[in-house]
Amino acid sequence: MARRKKIYEGKAKILYEGPEPGTFVQYFKDDATAFNAQKKDVIEGKGVLNNRLSEFFMQGLTNIGVPNHFIRRINMREQLIRQVEIIPLEVIVRNFAAGSLSKRLGMEEGTALPRPIVEYSYKNDALGDPMVSEEYVVAFGWANQQDLDDIVSLALRVNDFLSGVFYAVGIKLVDFKIEVGRIWDGDFMRLIVADEISPDSCRLWDVKSGRKLDKDVFRRDLGDLADAYSEVARRLGVLPAQTTHLTKPTLIN
């Protein structure tokens, strides 16, 4: 079998050349990182679960007409995606105060925000992904004003969808981040949701207990990350309800 060409490797995923022009194969690793990769570990089965969860969310977005890069899941760790030109921004949507927002503004974690807030950070690991304003984004040519309007629209539609899906299973969507990419149909350019949607990219709290079910479990040494992600998957129906550990998950097709 011919060795696949690696296109890019990040902290949690690897992109390989796809079987057809305009496609990539996205491989989910078991690596867990925090604080710009200063804290690292390998959580067995994490990549398997995030692959399936991202598939679940991307298919849900497709069903409501939100364009995204997902084509199909290939196997337990890989999915076929559209090749996109990634805009070098992390698009962050916040519904409740937490993390860096709480620190910046001195707000108690969990405080409900007056409305969803959309923020941007510049994707640059060496700089620690600094927060940037729309003025920076336009001035440096990362996106134009129309792009930003479309990105905000996409982000808020994703927020509406995810908030409803999570709340239905007793989970509060505190905040999340997405990436957005450009694709072309002839001369026509479209913006679509890319990268992944998983507990790695969302801040999730149990509605009743406040228990954290996201990567903050790893960041703050709050327990077993595998158990937290498994709980999310069980509630969403991605894992069978009787599954108790993520080491060798049995996923529902």
Rank of each mutant, 00 (worst) to 15 (best):
E17M: 04
Q26A: 12
L49K: 07
D224K: 08
D175Y: 09
L148F: 06
A226E: 10
T62C: 07
V169A: 03
V169M: 07
Y229W: 13
C202E: 14
K40S: 12
A37I: 03
K13R: 14
R235P: 11
E135M: 01
P249R: 00
Y8R: 02
E109W: 00
L154C: 09
D41Y: 03
P67C: 07
S100F: 00
V238R: 05
M189F: 00
V118G: 06
D187S: 10
N51Q: 07
T23Y: 02
V132M: 05
P249F: 00
K177V: 11
A2K: 13
V207G: 03
V42A: 04
S102A: 14
G110S: 02
D41Q: 02
N68A: 08
F70D: 04
A2D: 13
A168E: 15
G10A: 03
K212Y: 03
V42P: 04
V238C: 04
Q146P: 02
L148I: 15
G99P: 08
K177R: 07
L236E: 11
V138E: 11
A168Q: 15
K29E: 05
Y229K: 06
R82V: 13
A155Q: 12
W205H: 07
L15R: 03
V152W: 06
E108I: 07
I81P: 10
V180F: 11
A228E: 08
A143I: 11
G164V: 01
R73E: 10
W142R: 06
A98L: 01
I178T: 11
N144G: 14
R203T: 03
I43T: 14
S201R: 03
F176P: 05
D221P: 04
K5I: 13
I197S: 02
P19E: 12
N159M: 05
K215Y: 10
A226Q: 10
S133V: 01
R182H: 10
P199W: 05
Y229S: 05
I81Q: 09
N159Q: 11
I86K: 10
L246I: 14
K172E: 14
V165G: 01
N51I: 11
E231N: 08
D187H: 08
E109Q: 05
L89P: 14
L148Y: 07
G128L: 01
G60K: 07
P116A: 02
N95Y: 05
L127R: 06
V42Y: 06
E196Q: 04
W184T: 08
G128V: 04
E179D: 13
E85Q: 15
S102G: 14
H69C: 11
D150A: 15
K177D: 11
V174C: 04
Q59E: 15
P240M: 00
S102W: 01
I151P: 10
V174R: 04
E135R: 11
E55P: 02
